[in-house]
Design a protein around this nucleic acid. Structure first.
Lengths: 170, 170
DNA sequence: AGCAGTATCTGCATCCATGCAGCTAAATGT
DNA sequence: ACATTTAGCTGCATGGATGCAGATACTGCT
């Protein structure tokens, strides 16, 4: 993550930070996974829901592109999200072929209510910083989010080869 | 997450922080997901690998408990991790029935090398804080990780009912 | 030694997400 | 008007993860 920084000085602290950060990211990731599962969402559904929530709405095709699924699979994915009440389809007035997938706010809150209680641990952690320190933390959160999104895009872009589905036959 | 704090004063900033934090967590989660996929890992595999990596090694049974899978499914899971080179089985000298699953360090580094480049975005973000500010940030990372792990456990514990596999029938 | 309990593995069946290919509706270009 | 392209949906087939139940190997107790 930041071994990019000139390695000239590589004091023990550096290594510590690396490990700490890695474990932190891992912990956040697992918590997200558990949350998704608690909401009854599979990975791709959670991923898709995040995307449409962040953008406020996405067309089926855009979603297909972003997730890397075929349009057919995406249709099914939207079906599932819709059935579970997390998203709904809306018509695009500009282009009547298109389908805009929107998040359903109530359902999102529903997730939050499932996950919220457990997150009091986080609240406790955040609570014991001074206002100035919180300032720093939230500055980081605000800056890091786009950075993570950029990293995600790069990682996904490089994963078109998908070692997981090797030429499965003609 | 921290709406637990007395809601008496609920200034706009509060709401902002909430949104910022949520989007941040989401971004981190998606990045993790993308990383896992880039490494050719499915959700449960990634989850399991994180667990054994954090603990340095876990028995098959413990892994089954933690993941919520049956022992049979866990065997298969370990098979896949082993085949992919991310973990290996080791004998427990104390109890020869048991199998200890250990992470393979090289494979972990392999993941890091796939994901690392994209994370330079994060490095850039972290780089522009002063040492004092970094101190605060890493203090948070170190404290938040266990908090997330605790939250994860609670969430999973409450998800035994799994609305996803409704009485599927004899 | 024998017996009960425990840890893991294996065979079988099932479920479900996904790819693929063809289809219809709508937009766009000539 | 007609042809072409684009967006999304549906039928069919496949693969892979998982549960379940029984098999096997080992431990610990008596």
């Amino acid at each position: 993550m930041y071994e990019v920084i000139p390695a000239v000085a590589n004091p023990p602290r550096h290594q510590d930070e690396h490990v700490i950060y890695r474990q932190y990211l891992d912990a956040v990731g697992l918590q997200g996974l558990a949350s998704a599962e608690a909401a009854g969402l599979h990975t791709s559904e959670w991923y898709a829901l995040s995307l449409i929530t962040f953008r406020g709405g996405l067309s089926s095709g855009e979603l297909a592109t972003r997730t890397g699924l075929t349009t057919g699979a995406t249709t099914r994915l939207i079906d599932r999200l819709e059935k579970a009440g997390f998203a709904r389809r809306a018509a695009d007035p500009r282009d009547r072929r298109r389908v805009i997938v929107e998040p359903v706010p109530d359902a999102l809150d529903r997730i939050e209510s499932v996950v919220g209680p457990a997150r009091r641990h986080l609240a406790e952690v955040l609570a014991h910083y001074t206002p100035e320190q919180r300032e720093v933390l939230f500055d980081y959160f605000a800056r890091a989010a786009p950075a993570f999104r950029a990293a995600t895009e790069e990682i996904r872009a490089s994963t078109t080869d998908s070692r997981r589905r090797p030429g499965r036959k003609p």
